[in-house]
Amino acid sequence: MKPLRRAPLFLAPSPYRRRRLRDAARILPVAGVLLMILPMLWTPAGDGNRRLSGDVIWFFLTWAGLILTAAVFAPGLARPEDKWPGEGPAGGKGDEDED
């Protein structure tokens, strides 16, 4: 009945975990960018120390790692939003930026 019902300040463990999973999902592409542009800092290929095959292996291993992490995250993220009594559909703003 109250016009403004506030979301609970603290969450139960399982919604809390889901929130942190979302945080992790948000961080993942940032980590991916860092890993993918990291070879910029290496010495250029063909200088003797570095081999092209090493680059190839680096990129594909990081790539596979990112895909696996995303695959681990995906089922948890796809679950429906948490709802609180009195709150609008689909979790509302709390989902976007408030924990």
Partner: peptide, 10 residues
């Protein structure tokens, strides 16, 4: 595209 998709939540 890989980065965009693994960051789909954004």
């Amino acid at each position: 595209p890989t980065l965009v998709f693994i960051g789909w939540w954004w």
